[in-house]
Design a protein around this nucleic acid. Structure first.
Lengths: 242, 242
DNA sequence: CGAAGTATTGAGGACGGTCAATCCTCGTGG
DNA sequence: CCACGAGGATTGACCGTCCTCAATACTTCG
């Protein structure tokens, strides 16, 4: 299913980013304040609307990024224009790290799922970061390992599970990563459409809609436009196991 | 393929592995003969039957491996015992490189698809290899990047393509990687069952069988037990695009 | 208020999975 | 050398899941 994609404006160097932005993030956590200062001074910062591309599949990998706030979907677009979400990236992680896997171009497109704040550095600094900053390499490779694991899981799910289970799993994962306790359940704390869910689970928005309607009748979830609240997580877990 | 080889059940340090085994393989190609000698002297060599596990998902990653000859499938096994093939690894590549992605355990099981010859080193040597051997790190991360790309492709395929296209794609990939020209076409040069293909493409052996029968009637392929010969690759490509 | 994006729901049917029976191929051991 | 058994392959019948097509309604925003 083809979707519209809006273009987005300028990158800018903010006056004095605060060190505390990075100190608690794994790739930088072992560094001294002075080093973090240097890193921040080389960074560009930028805010993105929801639903825009941070970079596109095939672009030459000129920068790498740290997602400070928000949520990014890593998607691939098929020749026929369908989007497939390969991965979700939460705040606090690096993205666009093509250099780490020996690539010159980005292997997929990164789209913001919500409004997001992103730092970025030119890829030419990558080798310096790896060489000079203790723990940076180790942590980024851990991130990579985690993502490989997720992709593996996704492959297994797609290969063996029914649509209902995949959708249940996707929702559970979302509330684990970004769930917010609200009265009467846990809510996915950013706007997500049936279409988004269908791209996550390789089905159609129609099927997702039918499933959610059914679950709502049975009291498992409540949902309004772009909002999903899980009322009975345990029942969802049961469903997700088949 | 090295079919006839002496029995060699346990791992052992062979008398004098020849340097030429490694000199042309990317991770080692920039090294001097002397360095390769050292590397080989630290290696264990072992022969595996077809269809056995080199290591298992979840095992602590005590060694990393170089596949010298043969073919390995990286599979995951679901709670219900189904196998899903996530990746295929041809001779000349490293495997079991959990350390490269910051893991202590193997994320999947590696099963030989054919009789295979494998070198291995204790994971404790990993850091030394990365530090001392020029190009080793770069090349292994390229391999990793390539695998991530493959996994991505697989996700997209599973998410968007019909079974017929997936099976066609799988066969095309296999003949690209391991095809051998024979009279009247190209043959996958190791034994592969309908079951194997079905695990590669997330379908059932019945469906694969039906597809191959149909293609055979139309002259696209010929197949006997465990053997598949592609007679009209172009037609398969057309099929694979839908 | 209109327009665009989002969601719901029904009807129909194809793809491909399940069940089941049969046949073929190959290796083993008598 | 032949018989047997096990693993592999083929094919048919049936049917459920989920996709496609289609119509309609709701929500938000300019």
């Amino acid at each position: 299913m083809t979707r519209a994609m809006t273009e987005q404006p300028t990158r800018k160097t903010l006056p004095r980013l605060d060190e505390s932005l990075l100190t608690h993030l794994p790739p930088f956590s072992r560094l001294e304040k002075r080093q973090i200062r240097t890193i921040l001074d080389q960074a560009s910062s930028r805010r993105y609307e929801a639903g825009v591309a941070v970079f596109n599949e095939g672009d030459s990998a000129e920068r790498f990024y740290m997602l400070l706030d928000g949520y990014v979907r890593v998607v691939r677009i098929t020749p026929t224009g369908e989007q497939v979400t390969a991965l979700h990236i939460p705040a606090g992680q690096l993205l666009g790290i093509a250099k780490a896997i020996g690539r010159e171009t980005y292997p997929a497109t990164a789209m913001t799922a919500t409004e997001s704040i992103v730092l970025s550095w030119p890829t030419s600094l990558w080798d310096t970061f790896v060489a000079e900053y203790d723990g940076f390499a180790t942590e980024t490779y851990k991130t990579l390992g985690h993502r490989v694991g997720e992709m593996n899981t996704r492959i297994v799910e797609l290969a063996t599970q029914q649509v209902e289970q995949r959708v249940a799993n996707a929702i559970l994962r979302l509330i684990n990563q970004t769930g917010r306790k609200v009265e009467g359940g846990i809510e996915i704390d950013f706007p997500i459409t049936r279409q988004d869910l269908s791209e996550l689970t390789a089905t159609t928005l129609h099927t997702v809609s039918r499933l959610l309607s059914g679950w709502e009748k049975r009291g498992l979830v409540e949902s309004k436009r772009k909002r999903i609240k899980v009322c009975d997580p345990h029942a969802l877990v049961v469903l997700s196991q088949g």
